[in-house]
């Protein structure tokens, strides 16, 4: 701007302007390269998903060249590593369903109660002390929970239920439930906290107690969020590996009786991975086939959970 009133703008500004222009050019180029690098990093998330699906589909497709889909989905015998191999995955599926159901029976009510207590009842100071403990509980490695299930909970249960085998789905499910409690509680609590204060104040002003407010005002308003917590908790239980691999045994067993040992989908994958199966054998491919089923189940639950979670945000 100072150049214009001297009159000699052309001679003075052009070398400066050129330099600034080239500087800006270099700068913009650099900026664009950086943006591209950052984009590639972000796109990795998509690449990982695609890679997971591709690998599972690829290995499973060779598996399904040997095994009919009907046998896989309806057969009640799973013995891919035996001489007389059978490829019916229902025993694994039932094992997964039974352990996850037990886990949910523990984690659902407990998680809900904890969420309601922390969000509606607890004095804020106390909640601040208790919450980190729940976070720590969520941080305990699952292998430690497995130890706990096998060598603490199972002996305890054996005293209550005579004749309970050393490996059983009950103990694995119970401990898995305890593991998921913090997860369910924190999602449900988030949902309850998102309910506007004005709703609670309105309820209190009408003379409602805390319990009445929590039950008939906060819960209906956060219902889909609480459901999301349950659904995502189930998804966690279905995908959990070490607790069931350690405490529920690794033998496929087509039974709904939680006192019996049984393998889940995840436990079977661990069992096969532990033995050194040759790459490309049908046993090797079978873990990708059941892995695909596992991904489909958890993805289904996760999508429902995410949808429910998003719904609470849209209402207010």
């Amino acid at each position: 701007m100072t150049t214009t009133d001297t009159g000699g703008s052309g001679s003075l500004s052009s070398p400066y302007l050129d330099r600034i222009r080239t500087m800006r050019h270099v700068r913009n180029g650099k900026e664009r390269i950086i943006e591209a690098i950052l984009f590639v990093a972000a796109f990795c998330a998509v690449a990982v998903t695609v890679a997971i699906v591709a690998i599972l589909l690829y290995e499973a497709s060779t598996f399904f060249e040997h095994v009919s889909l009907v046998e896989f989905l309806t057969g009640t015998e799973w013995t891919p590593l035996f001489e007389r191999a059978r490829y019916g995955m229902l025993p694994l599926l039932v094992g997964t369903v039974v352990t996850s159901a037990i886990a949910f029976l523990v984690a659902g009510p407990l998680g809900f109660l904890i969420a309601m207590y922390l969000s509606e009842f607890a004095p804020p100071k106390l909640a601040e002390v208790l919450k980190p403990f729940l976070e720590l509980l969520a941080g305990v490695p699952t292998i430690v929970y497995g130890y706990f299930a096998l060598l603490f909970v199972t002996p305890l249960l054996q005293k209550l239920i005579p004749g309970l085998p050393g490996f059983n789905m009950l103990s694995a499910g119970l401990v898995m439930g305890l593991m998921i409690v913090p997860y369910v509680a924190s999602i449900a609590e988030d949902a309850m906290r998102a309910v506007p204060m004005a709703l609670r104040e309105g309820s209190y002003a009408m003379g409602a107690t805390r319990f009445q407010t929590a039950m008939w005002v906060v819960l209906p308003a956060s219902f889909s969020g609480v459901m999301a917590a349950f659904v995502l908790g189930i998804s966690r239980a279905v995908g959990e590996t070490m607790i069931v691999a350690i405490a529920a045994g690794q033998q496929p067993n087509f039974t709904f009786d939680p006192r019996e040992p049984a393998a889940t989908i995840t436990a079977y994958i661990v069992q096969v991975a532990m033995g050194d199966l040759p790459h490309g054998s049908i046993g090797y491919q079978s873990i990708f086939a059941v892995g695909l089923v596992l991904v489909v189940i958890t993805l289904f639950f996760n999508l429902i959970g995410q949808m429910l979670r998003r719904r609470i945000r849209e209402v207010y």
Binding site: A45, V46, V48, T49, A51, I52, I55, L56, L232, S235, R236, V238, G239, E240, T241, T266, I269, V270, A273, I287, F288, G291, L294, V295, T298, L299, N302, L303, G305, Q306
Partner: peptide
């Protein structure tokens, strides 16, 4: 994808 990857069971990463 980021949201979903957070919820993929860890054993699936093992298979990948």
């Amino acid at each position: 994808n980021v949201t979903n990857l957070a919820a993929v069971p860890s054993i699936i990463y093992g298979l990948l």
